[in-house]
């Protein structure tokens, strides 16, 4: 059932021409950024080589690239998650799911996983481009792996937050603005807080991603993402249930 709902979500997304257009445009942006980054690295490489312990291509090309993708996903995710439940409300298609033999958990997980798969597909070209560097040089696989895990957890947390905000409203546009405001707000609070022990650093997904980005796999960061995602999924389930209670 969960897979069925996820597949329906993907099918609806890919019937829209705009999805394909944005998909293509993003691949172009990713490739452009990758090449620019690579070119900058090649220019300074002779000087870097004279250092005692020169930084490799992974830390100079891959890590900043992952960081940029994380920022881009922060802006993009609300544009896609806005439709998840708000549009079902607006088009009055929710009764189809509510009167079908499945629970709110199925609906929420189906929508969450469908969107997550879509966003992974959207950014899948980035690791592929980066791994293509392995043809010519040695990559730091540990750093790559920690970035990939971090990006996956980060995307999941963005999606869960967007899904919840989409469940709060009837208007997809309001859901998009709300989710974007929440994500950008958390990010700005994080980079604006100067004290190193400020709580804003602890609750910002992008702040938590920095450790992964630097190649540091910290179980408390991973737990944060799991909890963040879980809490918003539970809140979404609750919201859908309240839908039946309060109408």
């Amino acid at each position: 059932m969960i897979r069925l709902i996820a597949m329906r979500e993907l099918r609806s997304l890919f019937t829209l021409p705009s999805t394909w257009l944005i998909f293509a445009a993003l691949q172009f942006v990713f490739a452009w950024f990758f090449l620019a980054r690579l070119e900058a690295f090649l220019e300074v490489q002779p000087q870097l080589a004279q250092l005692a312990n020169p930084p490799g291509v992974t830390i100079t090309v891959a890590a900043p690239m992952f960081n940029t993708i994380a920022l881009l996903l922060m802006m993009l995710t609300p544009m896609y998650t806005m439709r998840l439940i708000a549009e079902e409300r607006r088009n009055q298609t929710l009764p189809l799911l509510l009167s079908a033999p499945l629970s709110e958990l199925h609906i929420v997980l189906g929508k969450f996983l469908g969107m997550l798969v879509f966003l992974i597909a959207l950014s899948a070209s980035v690791p592929l481009m980066l791994y293509s560097l392995a043809l010519g040089t040695e990559l730091d696989h540990g750093l790559m792996l920690s970035n990939l895990i971090g990006l996956l957890l980060l995307t999941a947390s963005f999606t869960a937050l967007g899904l919840y905000i989409s469940a709060l409203t009837v208007q997809p546009v309001i859901a998009a603005i709300g989710a974007l405001a929440a994500l950008v707000g958390l990010w700005l609070a994080d980079i604006g807080a100067s004290a190193p022990d400020s709580p804003w650093h602890a609750i910002s997904p992008l702040g938590r991603f920095q450790n992964f980005n630097a190649g540091l796999l910290d179980s408390s960061d991973a737990m944060f993402f799991v909890l963040f995602t879980g809490v918003f999924l539970l809140l979404t389930i609750r919201r859908l249930h309240n839908n039946r209670t309060y109408g």
Binding site: R11, Q92, T93, L94, S99
Partner: peptide, 12 residues
């Protein structure tokens, strides 16, 4: 169940 507004995913 057929609600008042048919619950159709119009893009499918």
């Amino acid at each position: 169940y057929l609600p008042e507004t048919p619950p159709l995913y119009r893009e499918l």
